[in-house]
């Protein structure tokens, strides 16, 4: 009986305490930079698309909301022909970001994506692609990988020795 009265009194005292609610639209909460929100595709420091259309993000996605089609330009550089994320399915788990070998796909602290029509939640590549390098400035996959593309032959990447000419190794 006494404990009930004490409970009532304690709850009543809460009337004079600070309210915890954040008045959201006027007062934004702080979101850390690594918050998992809207997904973007980033670019190289040189301005080229980072995505090499390896499908790892699509495979890692637990709700299968990513779909893309790989293609190659005339220089041998792979890129996605289309890249589509259905945000009405996405659960913002960040597995795609972890799976991505080129830091192309990244999650940003933006979450205000509400739409009146569900169809508008399907983002195409133009909607996803941003102009900067995102969380990884200065990283360029094509400059560190050994793959040969237009303007960069084998052995010209960073920290890469020129290819060994097998024929010249003859004793």
């Amino acid at each position: 009986m006494l404990s009930i009265l004490r409970t009532l009194w304690n709850i009543f005292l809460h009337a004079f305490q600070r309210r915890e609610t954040v008045q959201y639209p006027e007062e934004k909460p702080y979101l850390p930079p690594r918050h998992k929100g809207r997904i973007i595709l980033t670019r190289d420091p040189d301005g080229g698309e980072r995505c090499v259309a390896c499908y790892l993000c699509a495979v890692a996605c637990p709700v299968a909301c990513i779909s893309l089609q790989a293609t190659e330009d005339e220089t041998g550089r792979r890129y996605p022909e289309f890249f589509r994320i259905n945000f009405s399915r996405c659960i913002f788990c960040g597995y795609c970001e972890e799976a991505c070998p080129t830091y192309a796909i990244q999650l940003t602290p933006d979450f205000e994506m509400a739409e009146y029509h569900r169809q508008n939640l399907v983002y195409e590549k133009e909607d996803l692609l941003m102009s900067g390098p995102g969380k990884r400035p200065g990283y360029n996959f094509w400059r560190v990988s050994g793959v040969k593309i237009g303007g960069k032959d084998k052995g010209e990447a960073e920290n890469e020795a020129p290819p060994v000419d097998l024929h010249s190794l003859l004793p």
Partner: peptide, 8 residues
């Protein structure tokens, strides 16, 4: 209820 639960 909100007042006593520190809400608005």
């Amino acid at each position: 209820l909100a007042l006593w639960q520190d809400r608005y």
